[in-house]
């Protein structure tokens, strides 16, 4: 398998101390618990990486699961040349799947017929992650409502949504760099607290 040939120079110096290094060999040796460990360790970050890219949670989940299945299937057949490069290998597999899916969608979209338009609308309106979305929106709304000044809300919007740079925002709103950092830090701290509360509430 070409994908297995991850260059040995990719190995991090402390790779031998990393427990994930052994996973590749254990999976190849037929240790089923190592496969579970691999999924537990890498499914969530892989899913995040794919969600970040493809924006469609359902599709990201399918791709992340496929990536895990492919990695396990490959490792069963032969271990990595450099077990320390397992994260790189997983990323590569996930990215290949994502790019393949993206190309497939691009090909399907070459003729913008009614079906495609309807599909696009349906995707936009998809309520697949509506519960999570509502909870997230509600937590962020609370954070925003607690911000002392309208200007602080504006900072977050300009930074995350308008993707303006910090210097640009500071100049525009006549802010000090420290004030900017403080608003961002406090918003994240508060959100973290609300999330922990939410998790406790949900058992």
């Amino acid at each position: 398998m070409g994908n297995h040939s991850i260059n040995s120079t990719d190995q991090a110096p402390d790779a031998v101390d990393n427990p994930s290094v052994l996973l590749s060999e254990r999976i190849h040796a037929g240790d089923r618990s190592a496969e579970t460990e691999l999924v537990q360790q890498f499914l969530r970050p892989t899913l995040f990486m794919l969600q970040y890219r493809c924006k469609n949670p359902a599709q990201a989940e399918d791709l992340a699961q496929d990536a895990m299945a492919i990695v396990i299937s490959h490792l069963r057949k032969s271990p990595l040349e450099n077990p320390g490069a397992l994260p790189k290998y997983i990323r590569q597999i996930a990215m290949n799947l994502f790019i393949g899916e993206y190309r497939k969608q691009q090909r399907q979209q070459t003729s913008a017929d009614q079906t495609t338009i309807e599909q696009a609308v349906a995707e936009q309106a998809s309520s697949y992650d509506s519960v999570v979305q509502q909870q997230r929106a509600s937590a962020v709304r609370r954070v925003l409502a607690e911000l002392p000044k309208q200007r602080d809300r504006q900072i977050l919007r300009l930074f995350y949504l308008a993707e303006q740079d910090k210097d640009e925002i500071c100049k525009r709103l006549k802010l000090s760099s420290a004030h900017f950092d403080r608003v961002l830090y406090r918003a994240k701290q508060r959100l973290r607290k609300l999330y922990v509360q939410e998790q406790k509430k949900n058992g």
Binding site: R136, A137, A139, V140, V143, R157, Y160, L161, L191
Partner: peptide, 8 residues
Amino acid sequence: ALKQGLLD
């Protein structure tokens, strides 16, 4: 989550 929440 903060970014997506702002977007939502």
